[in-house]
Simulated scan of single mutants.
Amino acid sequence: MTVLASNLKSAGSDLVPRHVAIIMDGNGRWARARGKPRTAGHRAGVDAVRRTVQAAAEIGIEYLTLYGFSTENWKRPEGEVSDLMGLLRLFIKRELAALDKNGVQIKIIGDRDRFAPDIRELLNNAEKRTATNSSLKLTIALSYGARSELVDAVRQIARRIASGELSVTDVSEDLIEQNLATAGMPDPDLLIRTSGEQRISNFLLWQSAYTEFVFDDVLWPDFERQHLERAIENFAGRERRFGAVL
């Protein structure tokens, strides 16, 4: 029996990370190992998203952030990108009602201007429809890159300095955080990357300064509740000092 199964049923437990971020990696390798096209891996990955959202809510995680599509992913073959856009449309249309019913609040971060108008409308409607929900705050990073996010934050602050609204001495960590796409959210306590790769690939660079990392060999389509629980068990056994000596 896992630690979570026996001891972490309460959402208020200090051992449950408040915010979990996941880099969902391995769809292509999952498909290749089965002799299937990459699109099959992406479709199987959607099922893993559904399972993970449900498990996170049941475990008592408050914030779940999923890296769905990076700014670099636009460089993939046109056919693959087109299929991913189709899956995004399908996911929102099929899952929104259930997510809303279960109290999941949806937030999208990233450059949504690069998406087709109908996708932008779907994303906007998903955010509006679920804005008052509070059982789980689900953030999906789409067309997202942390360096671009930081550039945007600097530009916003620079414009306010140029207009005289702010001075250079007003620039602080808090001010930068207020201008990030994740403003108002706690930093991730735990970041999980699947597929065995050990890098964070331009994901939440500022926010992950003191995040605990777990790299799991499981490919994303095979990610189950047990893998999430195992990562949280790992997290619960660590001593977080945030640069201090305890």
Rank of each mutant, 00 (worst) to 15 (best):
V3F: 14
V3L: 15
L15Q: 14
P17H: 10
D25N: 08
G26L: 06
G28M: 02
A31F: 05
R32H: 14
A33Y: 05
R34W: 01
K36Y: 02
T39Q: 14
G41N: 06
G45N: 10
V53K: 02
A55S: 15
A57Y: 00
E58R: 14
I59H: 05
E62V: 05
Y63V: 12
Y63P: 00
G68R: 05
T71H: 09
E72P: 07
E72I: 08
N73V: 11
N73K: 10
W74Y: 02
W74E: 03
K75R: 14
P77E: 06
E78S: 13
L84W: 10
M85S: 10
G86K: 12
F91K: 08
R94H: 13
A97T: 14
L99V: 10
I108P: 00
I108Y: 13
G110K: 09
R112W: 01
A116T: 11
A116V: 02
A116C: 00
P117G: 07
I119F: 08
R120I: 11
E121G: 00
N124K: 12
A126G: 00
S135D: 10
L136S: 02
K137V: 13
L138I: 00
I140L: 14
A141T: 09
S143I: 04
Y144L: 09
G145E: 08
S148C: 06
E149W: 03
L150D: 06
D152H: 14
V154E: 03
R155E: 14
Q156A: 13
R160Y: 01
I161Q: 04
G164K: 07
E165N: 07
E165I: 02
V168G: 03
S172W: 11
E173F: 08
D174W: 04
L175R: 04
L175C: 05
P188Q: 08
P188T: 04
L191N: 03
S195V: 05
G196C: 04
E197P: 00
I200R: 12
F203G: 04
L205M: 15
S208M: 15
A209R: 10
Y210S: 11
T211C: 14
V218W: 01
V218K: 00
L219R: 01
P221F: 07
D222T: 01
F223A: 08
Q226N: 10
Q226W: 02
R230Q: 13
G237S: 11
R238D: 02
R240I: 04
F242G: 04
V245Q: 11
V245C: 10
L246S: 13
